[in-house]
């Protein structure tokens, strides 16, 4: 072995950029382009007048950028029958979002707390069943739920869609908080019990204040999830409360005659805006949310 080794020349300091390194950066650059292309095209298209879109190049920068299409998308684009722009959908989504996020996190954290720290009979079975349910497509539940809500008189309404989001958010929220509480030192819980704190006192005064990071993750997860929902809003929210995603689809896909691609793209960007802001604003928290949500089961 050393006989061979001695034939080798004295070692040299390696160069900083090897060909492999160049290849790596080329790969990253090209894939990054693929991921950025749609966002770029959305932005430039939304800033061009229709004439330029018809003649020009999809990738070209706008000759004379204008926000006309944005204004039109926000205030006067037509969603089927009415022409009041996507702003209606924006505010509908907001009205759905705020109570849904709050209530689903409240109930999810309480359930997760009860299932993790209080050794109740059947808790594991309940939790396991919820995990299975998290994977089941909505189509299985939708029809009976529609019937139940119309039977109770709620029908399609804001309250209905909030309840629906709470129901379908429950498995993930429970999982999130159960795993978090289970990772805390159990001595903390025991100490609180020895001090005589009751079930809800421990929850409100000890556990939730410690769960701030999980609450942030849950808010991010639920905000993007509920904002991006299409099918539940379509079925349960009712005509007056249709969320932004449904309105957007109506604007783009139910146009008669020539389509205003600039308006479509402006409306699309407006719909994507909130999740994008949450995503870029939250940085690593979003990744943490994925990681926490990904350990389903």
């Amino acid at each position: 072995m050393t006989a061979v080794a001695q034939l080798l020349p004295a070692s040299r300091r390696p160069k900083r950029m090897t060909p492999a390194r160049w290849g790596l950066y080329a790969f990253i650059f090209i894939t990054a382009l693929y991921f950025l292309l749609p966002l770029y095209v959305m932005i430039v298209t939304s800033l061009k007048p229709m004439a330029e879109i018809r003649q020009g190049n999809l990738l070209a920068l706008p000759a004379a950028p204008s926000i006309d299409a944005w204004v039109k998308a926000w205030t006067s684009a037509c969603t089927g029958l009415t022409c009041q722009g996507i702003k209606i959908g924006f505010f509908n989504s907001l009205r759905i979002l705020v109570p849904s996020v709050g209530i689903s996190i409240l109930i999810g954290s309480l359930t997760g707390y009860a299932l993790s720290l209080w050794r109740l009979p059947g808790a594991n079975i309940l939790f396991g069943a919820m995990m299975v349910v998290a994977f089941i497509p909505y189509q299985v539940f939708i029809y009976p739920l529609v019937r139940v809500f119309s039977f109770t008189g709620l029908g399609q309404s804001l309250l209905t869609i909030v309840i629906i989001h709470t129901i379908f958010g429950l498995p993930t929220m429970t999982l999130l908080f159960r795993n978090y509480f289970a990772s805390l030192p159990v001595e903390l819980f025991k100490a609180a019990r020895v001090d005589g704190a009751g079930f809800y006192q421990i929850y409100a005064l000890i556990m939730m204040p410690m769960a701030t990071p999980m609450i942030v993750v849950a808010v991010i997860l639920q905000t993007t999830g509920i904002w991006n929902d299409f099918i539940l809003g379509l079925i349960f929210a009712g005509r007056d409360n249709l969320p932004m995603t449904v309105q957007l689809n109506n604007i783009v896909n139910s146009t008669q005659g020539e389509r205003a691609y600039n308006v479509d793209m402006a409306a699309t960007l407006l719909t994507a805006l909130l999740p994008l802001v949450v995503y870029f604003g939250s940085g690593r928290w979003f990744v943490r949310g994925i990681a926490a949500g990904a350990v389903k089961g």
Binding site: P38, N228, L248, T271, L276, F286, V287
Partner: peptide
């Protein structure tokens, strides 16, 4: 790489 995942399927489909 990750930002598309924050967007809805509706937005993805339309783009």
């Amino acid at each position: 790489y990750l930002y598309p995942y924050s967007m809805s399927f509706v937005v993805t489909g339309l783009v």
